[in-house]
């Protein structure tokens, strides 16, 4: 009976496990093997060589792509937290509770535009003929049209927009779970509102910040669309370089090595933040 039951259970888990193995684990394994192969001219040479990894560390082109990606991602994460925290705080503590759900839904509504459409929309706003440039000219602040895209700034604005919404969501979800009694207790013990925030609310909302920050990091560093549409080709981020390797040169081995390096960076960040990432607490 017990044996039959566990056999049946294995039968139920098997499809999901096999799917994950076949289309997630095996592909990453194959990619790892590929990363030790080499592209010479138009041929792929099998074997074992570390040349792709050596190229990554010795060529500034590749190294810079990683540094650019890290810089942009960290900057985006920090700016987004700074923008999102006050918004989440106001929504959680100062908006009447029957309006909260609506206000939050509104605050993250544009979250649901697809990546491509969202970046295109920013192109409309930030290009030389766009709304921002036109408005600044009308106000007399600018004389000539100025484009805010095709630059790191374009990429960052596009990213910050998306991740502010994401972080507002995770921080809000965390803030509403902090019992209000804690704040009353702090007040009874003579804490000012600022002290109560600093010593009670802020430390208790760290899990919400960390979950949002981790998601921001992973989604931001692996995104190709936003830098490609808004950042242009002057300064490349790692995903753009990966796509160029497959696109123009069909260099799958190099693209594999770069993808694995990206994966390594994400895994490292995951390990560092893992102890904060207990999702059930958010």
């Amino acid at each position: 009976m017990n044996r039959r039951e566990s056999l049946k259970a294995w039968g139920l888990i098997a499809p999901a496990l096999l799917w994950t193995l076949a289309f997630f684990v095996v592909p990453i394994a194959i990619m790892t093997v590929y990363s030790f192969w080499q592209r010479v001219g138009t041929k792929t040479v099998r074997g074992f060589s570390l040349d792709n990894y050596v190229a990554f560390f010795s060529k500034t082109y590749f190294r810079e792509a990683l540094f650019n990606s890290l810089e942009v991602t960290i900057l985006v994460t920090v700016i987004s937290i700074l923008l999102a925290y006050p918004l989440a705080y106001i929504l959680a503590y100062q908006v009447p509770s029957h309006w909260q759900r609506l206000a939050l839904s509104l605050a993250i509504l544009p979250f649901w535009t697809s990546y491509v459409v969202r970046s295109y929309s920013w192109l409309l706003v930030l290009s030389a003929k766009g709304i921002v440039s036109k408005s600044l000219q009308t106000l007399g602040i600018l004389h000539d049209p100025v484009s805010f895209v095709n630059s790191r700034m374009g990429t960052i604005i596009g990213f910050v927009h998306f991740f502010t919404m994401l972080l507002t969501l995770t921080i809000f979800a965390n803030l509403v779970q902090i019992p209000r009694n804690y704040l009353k207790a702090a007040a009874d013990l003579g804490a000012s509102r600022l002290q109560a925030f600093w010593h009670v609310t802020l430390p208790l909302s760290v899990p919400g910040i960390m979950v949002g920050a981790f998601l921001t990091f992973v989604l931001c560093i692996g995104d190709y669309i936003t830098p490609q549409i808004l950042g242009g080709n002057k300064e490349l981020l790692l995903p753009q370089v990966i796509m160029l390797q497959i696109g123009r040169q069909a260099n799958f081995p190099m693209a594999s090595a770069l993808s694995l390096i990206l994966m390594l960076v994400i895994s490292l960040v995951f390990l560092v933040s893992a102890r904060y990432l207990r999702l059930e607490r958010v």
Partner: peptide
């Protein structure tokens, strides 16, 4: 194992499948 793909970039999943 089943939830592992959640913390991976779509780009890496896509690259793996493309190469495979």
């Amino acid at each position: 194992l089943i939830t592992a793909p959640l913390s991976m970039s779509y780009l890496i999943i896509a690259m793996g499948l493309l190469i495979t």
